[in-house]
Computed example of a mutant assay.
Amino acid sequence: MSNFNYAARAELFASRRYAKNNQTQYRRFNTAAEAVRFVIEDLPTAARAGSYLEVDEQRYEGGSIKELYDAEAYPLERTFA
């Protein structure tokens, strides 16, 4: 994931279980960095299972999103360690 573009636009597709609770089913972000931060810092843990990000026509799920958040190249300030 060393070539990941944090500045690219991103789309979040919430899991079906999460969407059934009348929460956000789909959300766009101006940057992938903002999307990654939202998933890790704001999305309830239960909602992460089955949710994924699409960035530059690539799909990122669960552990992959956490790796992007933890990466040295991540450009935003982190709330979680």
Results as ranks from 00 to 15, higher is better:
Leu53Val: 15
Asn3Pro: 04
Thr45Lys: 14
Ala32Asn: 10
Tyr69Asp: 02
Thr31Gly: 10
Ile65Pro: 01
Asn22Thr: 12
Phe4Pro: 08
Tyr26Asn: 06
Glu41Thr: 00
Ala35Gln: 04
Glu61Ser: 13
Ala73Pro: 00
Gly50Trp: 08
Ala19Leu: 03
Gly50Ile: 07
Thr79Gln: 07
Thr31Ser: 15
Lys20Met: 11
Thr45Ile: 15
Phe80Arg: 12
Asn3Trp: 05
Asp42Met: 04
Ala19Asp: 06
Arg27His: 13
Ala32Lys: 06
Glu57Ile: 04
Thr31Phe: 10
Ala19Trp: 05
Ala49Asp: 07
Tyr69His: 06
Glu72Phe: 03
Asp42Arg: 07
Glu67His: 08
Ala73Phe: 00
Ser15Pro: 06
Tyr6Asp: 05
Ala81Cys: 04
Thr79Tyr: 01
Phe29Pro: 02
Ala49Glu: 02
Asn30Ile: 02
Val39Gln: 01
Val55Met: 05
Gly50Gln: 09
Gln58Trp: 03
Gln25Lys: 10
Phe13Arg: 13
Tyr52Lys: 05
Tyr60Ile: 09
Arg48Tyr: 01
Tyr6Arg: 07
Glu54Gly: 02
Ala46Phe: 15
Glu77Ser: 10
Thr31Cys: 08
Met1Glu: 09
Pro75Ile: 09
Arg37Ile: 00
Ala14Trp: 12
Leu76Lys: 01
Ala32Trp: 04
Asn21Lys: 15
Leu76Ile: 03
Tyr6Val: 11
Gln25Leu: 06
Asp70Cys: 11
Leu68Phe: 00
Tyr6Gly: 09
Glu54Trp: 03
Phe38Ser: 02
Glu72Val: 04
Arg16Ile: 09
Asp70Ala: 12
Glu54Lys: 13
Asp42Thr: 04
Thr45Arg: 11
Ala19Glu: 09
Glu72Tyr: 02
Asn21Ile: 11
Ala8His: 11
Ile40Ala: 10
Ser64Lys: 10
Asp56Asn: 14
Ala33Pro: 03
Ile40Val: 15
Ala35Asp: 06
Ala10Thr: 07
Glu72Met: 04
Glu67Arg: 12
Ser15Thr: 03
Ala81His: 05
Ala47Thr: 06
Leu76Trp: 05
Tyr18Asn: 11
Tyr26Cys: 05
Glu72Ala: 09
Met1His: 08
